[in-house]
């Protein structure tokens, strides 16, 4: 019950800012669900708490904190529950607050929809490209030990550390129209500057480490003797990888892909440096904000937030399910 109290505390803390009945209603709903699931009378107490909160949210919060303090004997857990709820509110409240500006009208904003499509296409392409490289790199890093391996591992993590605008300029120098790689590639018709490939390259640069590290960790956990056994049974290296390794790391691949995709979708700095157009969603929001002010940017921002959250949560759920399967 302490954990549910913890949850209620978060909800109450959030509702205090809104001063609305909406979250009180959700809190009641949540605990009706818990009661129906666990069929334990003691959960009625949550309904009472919810109504106390309804009188005034502060009253509800005090009641919940009081209950937590008397139910939890351990000071360490008391502190953890209360600090934990404060931090979660710090994350959840701003997000919910923004969602209040959501308007279905945004769907008629063509520029926004286009930007979202560009974002999704670019992030998905970047994730697929990252996967092609992550599998072999992850394998080598998981299985082989060699001099300089830790250096290579640090190099792979570098894009996480580099400020994203710096990453953008780093890429622009090489992939730009007169860049060392950009110039010859432009000759054969692949343009990066202000073009889709540029967006993908920027996203790949900042997001691939998440996938590589996931694949590496996944392969590390598989006993190498599975591979030996498969080979002794007649499977070549490629076959062993496909039949034995891949099925066992599919959860890691999915989690890594989701993380990497999410990272790519959220990238702004590096992408903007190399390709302001075609606009990705974050660039479009930035464009609205700087040209028309905060108020005009809000509906589009809320729309983007909702879509990203929805996709992220769905993918995460699929990944978890595959991991447990």
């Amino acid at each position: 019950m302490k954990k549910q109290l913890f949850l209620l505390l978060i909800i109450l803390l959030i509702s205090i800012f809104f001063g609305s009945y909406v979250f009180m209603a959700t809190s009641i709903a949540i605990f009706i669900i818990i009661y129906l699931k666990e069929r334990d009378r003691k959960y009625w107490i949550f309904l009472i708490l919810a109504f106390i909160g309804l009188v005034h949210p502060l009253l509800g919060i005090i009641a919940v904190i009081f209950l937590l303090l008397i139910m939890e004997q351990d000071n360490f857990y008391r502190l953890s529950y209360i600090l934990g709820s404060l931090f979660l509110v710090f994350i959840i409240f701003p997000i919910l607050n923004l969602l209040l500006y959501f308007s279905p009208q945004s769907i008629y904003d063509e520029a926004l929809i286009n930007a979202i499509i560009v974002s999704f296409v670019a992030a998905t392409s970047s994730t697929l490209i990252a996967l092609i490289f992550a599998l072999p790199i992850g394998y080598i890093l998981a299985r082989k030990s060699f001099a300089g391996k830790s250096i290579i591992e640090s190099v792979i993590d570098l894009p996480i550390v580099i400020p994203h605008t710096v990453a953008g300029i780093v890429l622009l120098l090489v992939f730009g129209t007169s860049g060392i790689w950009g110039a010859p590639l432009e000759e054969i018709g692949i343009r990066f500057y202000y073009a889709m490939p540029g967006i993908i390259v920027a996203m790949l640069f900042v997001s691939a480490p998440f996938l590589i590290n996931q694949v590496k960790e996944g392969i590390k956990k598989i006993d190498e003797r599975y591979e030996y056994t498969a080979m002794s049974l007649g499977a070549g290296r490629f076959r062993t990888f496909v039949d034995i390794i891949l099925p066992q790391i599919k959860g890691n691949i999915l989690t890594g892909s989701v993380n990497s995709w999410a990272r790519a979708i959220s990238e702004f700095g590096a992408v903007m440096m190399i390709a302001f157009y075609p606009m990705v969603a974050p660039t479009y929001i930035y464009f609205l904000y700087t040209n028309y002010g905060l108020k005009s940017a809000l509906p589009a921002t809320a729309f983007l937030l909702l879509i990203t959250l929805a996709v992220f949560i769905i993918l995460k759920m699929i990944a978890e399910r595959m991991k447990n399967a």
Binding site: R225, Y228, T229, M231, S232, R239, D243, I244
Partner: peptide, 17 residues
């Protein structure tokens, strides 16, 4: 290479896939 030898290995913990 191992897969061309016709030598099958069974480990102590069996390594069933």
């Amino acid at each position: 290479p191992p897969h061309k030898r016709g030598v099958a290995m069974v480990y102590q913990d069996y390594m069933l896939f």
